[in-house]
Amino acid sequence: MTTAVFPGTFDPVTWGHVDIATRARSMFSRVILAVAHNSTKTPLLDLETRVALATRAVAPLDGVEVVAVDGLLVDFCRDVSAGVIVKGLRGGSDYDYERPMALMNRSLTGIETVFITGDNALSHVASSLVRDVARHGGAIGRYVPEGVVDAVSAALATGRA
């Protein structure tokens, strides 16, 4: 049984994230979406909301679970006996960003990173773009699972943006 960890901020979770989780689950017996607290980012949605939305989004996927993570990803991977880290790639710039982290993670613990190329139909969907569209009053419903639109709207209404 191989456990894979799919880390991210998931601010907010998108259909692209669900696509990667679905395809990762077809390769690994257990997939954990590790919703990260990243001290270098100021998320629109709080950690509890991001975990709840991600949990709802992957609920139909057997063998996929969601956990909040604080600290080094490789420590979390060791704690859950993960054999691999999964990262989704939309394009070359994602690879350029993710490759050094994959090499560092392997250097620290020997854990490998598997890159999964995102669905072409979703390659333009990024959480940062979804947030930006929402901030400017645009419709984001087709890019995100149920519940996300309301959570993003509520966060924007409270001035978290």
Score class of each variant (00 low, 15 high):
residue 148 V to F: 00
residue 79 D to E: 14
residue 63 G to P: 02
residue 64 V to L: 05
residue 90 R to T: 05
residue 93 S to T: 15
residue 74 V to N: 09
residue 31 V to N: 13
residue 103 L to P: 11
residue 9 T to I: 11
residue 112 E to S: 06
residue 136 H to M: 14
residue 123 S to R: 13
residue 65 E to T: 14
residue 30 R to P: 09
residue 151 A to C: 00
residue 144 V to D: 00
residue 8 G to D: 08
residue 56 R to Q: 14
residue 160 R to P: 02
residue 51 V to Y: 07
residue 147 G to R: 00
residue 67 V to R: 12
residue 95 Y to Q: 06
residue 49 T to G: 07
residue 155 A to G: 00
residue 91 G to L: 08
residue 90 R to P: 07
residue 79 D to C: 05
residue 17 H to F: 04
residue 150 D to H: 02
residue 54 A to D: 03
residue 124 H to N: 07
residue 135 R to P: 05
residue 93 S to R: 15
residue 46 D to E: 12
residue 38 N to W: 13
residue 44 L to R: 08
residue 119 D to V: 02
residue 76 F to A: 02
residue 116 I to G: 02
residue 94 D to P: 10
residue 112 E to G: 02
residue 85 I to W: 02
residue 48 E to M: 15
residue 5 V to T: 08
residue 157 A to Q: 06
residue 127 S to E: 06
residue 117 T to Y: 01
residue 116 I to D: 03
residue 156 L to F: 01
residue 52 A to F: 04
residue 112 E to C: 03
residue 83 G to R: 00
residue 148 V to A: 00
residue 120 N to P: 14
residue 161 A to W: 04
residue 34 A to G: 10
residue 77 C to L: 04
residue 69 V to D: 02
residue 72 L to G: 07
residue 42 T to H: 12
residue 100 P to G: 14
residue 114 V to L: 08
residue 13 V to W: 00
residue 104 M to L: 15
residue 122 L to R: 04
residue 64 V to C: 07
residue 74 V to Q: 01
residue 45 L to E: 04
residue 75 D to V: 05
residue 155 A to S: 00
residue 3 T to R: 04
residue 138 G to C: 13
residue 69 V to S: 01
residue 9 T to Y: 03
residue 114 V to T: 05
residue 44 L to M: 06
residue 34 A to P: 04
residue 95 Y to C: 06
residue 127 S to D: 04
residue 109 T to F: 05
residue 77 C to Q: 02
residue 9 T to P: 03
residue 79 D to N: 09
residue 114 V to W: 01
residue 75 D to N: 13
residue 108 L to F: 15
residue 160 R to M: 10
residue 53 L to Q: 06
residue 72 L to T: 12
residue 120 N to W: 12
residue 75 D to G: 04
residue 74 V to R: 09
residue 44 L to I: 12
residue 132 D to S: 13
residue 157 A to Y: 04
residue 58 V to M: 05
residue 61 L to K: 11
residue 94 D to S: 13
residue 33 L to Y: 00
residue 145 P to Y: 09
residue 99 R to M: 15
residue 84 V to R: 06
residue 20 I to W: 04
residue 73 L to D: 02
residue 142 R to C: 07
residue 155 A to W: 00
residue 46 D to Q: 09
residue 43 P to S: 08
